[in-house]
Amino acid sequence: MSVITLTLNGELISGLSGQTLLDVIKEHGVEIPTLCHLDGISERGGCRLCMVEVNGRLTASCVTKASEGMHVNTHTEKLIKYRKMLMELMFAERNHICAICVMNGHCELQAMAAHLGMDSVRYDYLNPDLPMDASHKRYVLDHNRCILCTRCVRVCNEVEGAHTWDVMGRGIVSQIVADLNFAWGNSPSCTSCGKCVQVCPTGALFEARHDGRGNGKEA
């Protein structure tokens, strides 16, 4: 690996070739919002929050390799606006009424919205009528809160090695599925390790209490 030099928000910085832009930027103390990215699993490039401007064009920093001479800007007016709009889209897609959500107050998505200054949604709420899956003895899946970041899919496949989760359908009707669209509780591949529940950034996957009231993931 060789050392490379790039410009980050007007300052010359160095990184190693082969590193992602996101890693280099974070190493230099600049904070970039991310949702689908998670250290330790493969990148997806789906949420688009981590987009930065490289030589005048926007690119997702988590899936872009840093290279010599890049001119990177992380917080242009446009980027700040776009990140907020992306947040609005995620909130409009399904049902995010935080006040009645198990994850209220512990939610990465909610915190990110607050952090990015998203205080209202200007788009139509799509409010699809999606089911919940409470068939698993320890965990619950609520599709209405899922943002399809696929952290659960990747952690289950790459870390646990079970590949219980996948995505079915395409576009706006995509959904997370356990195995070949089984009820989670009947999944022959799930080892009940709980990794997916741990990594879910929303209230889509949560731990059911033993008393069955489903009162939230452990903090």
Binding site: L86, E93, D124, R170, S174
Partner: peptide
């Protein structure tokens, strides 16, 4: 485009639907 979006990234998956609306 709404029908054919693969659903991987947010701007296309939700954005096309909102533009359609």
């Amino acid at each position: 485009c709404v029908d054919e979006s693969c659903g991987k990234c947010v701007p296309c998956r939700v954005g096309t639907m909102e533009m359609y609306r």
